[in-house]
Amino acid sequence: MRRFFFSGATALCLTLFGHAASADQLADIKAKGTLVCGTLGTAEPFSFPNPQTREIQGYDVDFCKAIADSLGVKLELRLVAVPARITELQQGRVDILAANLGWTSERAQQIAYSDSYFASLQKVAVRRNSGIKTLDELGGKRVSAIKGSTSEMGVRKAIPTASPVTFQDAPAAFLALQLSKVDGLALSELVLVKYKQQAENTTPIDIVEKPLMLEAWGIGMRKDEAALIEQVNGALRKLDQSNAATAIFDKWLGASSPYGMRREFQIAPIKG
């Protein structure tokens, strides 16, 4: 059996060559002519199958397309599971992530985040006949939330005198509101909008306008890829300045969508 030995200089050259070959992901993406964007594919209205064509579409997908266009390359979508998102990115199976990726300090230690391109608002719903209109009016009252969720944390911070009543899932927390066991329900605004539609003919609810808190979502990228991070942030800022970002929001979440939401945020750096 032959054995191969490398001198220290040769090994150093190979190491440096390997590092250089993978040091500029932006150049690699342009060279291959394709941007691989990891997305969930199961999260309406962010990335989900078109009922007719089965093609993946949505808010996240449109941002992926816009970033690919800014690079002058084709877009390839790759579906990822929530628990595997960061692993898929770190192992190079996707170039970027647009996959409902809320910023956390733990994740930020593993990957780089772009500026925030979506803000997931945590809000409170109340029964319409309660007369409650503001968060302050929930002081001293019971508010349901999912145990350990950002919504629960938001209640404790924004309404310190309220009493959070926690449940294992959103349906149970919603039922508590319908049965008048609690005075408010804290959840993501998107979920509350759906519950409001469902409850209109039974126990109507309203959503308090002021949010409890805001969870910033960013495009996920590998660390130490300064050129790609700068490119993505530049593309996002141009979308905001041209109102294209607002158009994407309105298309999937705005007044003419089933959600009827208003865009109350701008693309901006995420502050941890």
Rank of each mutant, 00 (worst) to 15 (best):
M1Q: 11
R2P: 12
F5A: 12
G8L: 15
G8S: 14
G8A: 14
G18A: 08
A23W: 03
L26N: 03
A31I: 05
V36P: 02
G41V: 07
T42P: 00
P45H: 07
S47P: 08
S47A: 15
F48Q: 02
P49Q: 09
P49M: 09
N50Y: 13
E55L: 14
Q57V: 15
Y59D: 09
D62Y: 06
D62K: 07
S70L: 09
G72P: 00
K74M: 08
V82L: 13
R85P: 04
I86A: 04
T87N: 14
L89A: 03
Q90R: 08
R93S: 05
V94K: 06
I96V: 07
L97Q: 03
L101A: 04
T104C: 03
S105Q: 13
E106P: 06
R107L: 01
Q110L: 09
Y113F: 14
A119T: 14
S120Y: 14
Q122P: 00
Q122K: 06
G131H: 14
D136Q: 15
G139P: 13
R142H: 11
V143T: 04
T150M: 00
G154P: 00
V155A: 04
R156C: 01
R156H: 01
P160T: 07
T161K: 12
A162D: 03
P164V: 01
D169Y: 00
D169W: 01
A170C: 06
A170N: 05
F174K: 01
S180D: 14
K181A: 12
A186Y: 02
A186T: 04
V191P: 03
V191A: 10
V191I: 14
A199C: 13
A199L: 12
E200S: 14
T202V: 15
D206R: 12
I207L: 06
I207W: 07
L212W: 07
L212D: 05
L212Y: 08
L212M: 10
L214F: 15
E215M: 15
E225F: 01
A226E: 12
A227W: 07
A227D: 12
V232R: 00
R237G: 00
K238C: 00
K238N: 11
L239C: 09
D240R: 12
D240I: 02
T246I: 11
K251D: 00
W252L: 13
W252V: 12
W252D: 13
G254M: 04
P258T: 12
Y259N: 04
G260D: 11
R263E: 10
Q266M: 10
Q266A: 14
I267F: 10
K271T: 15
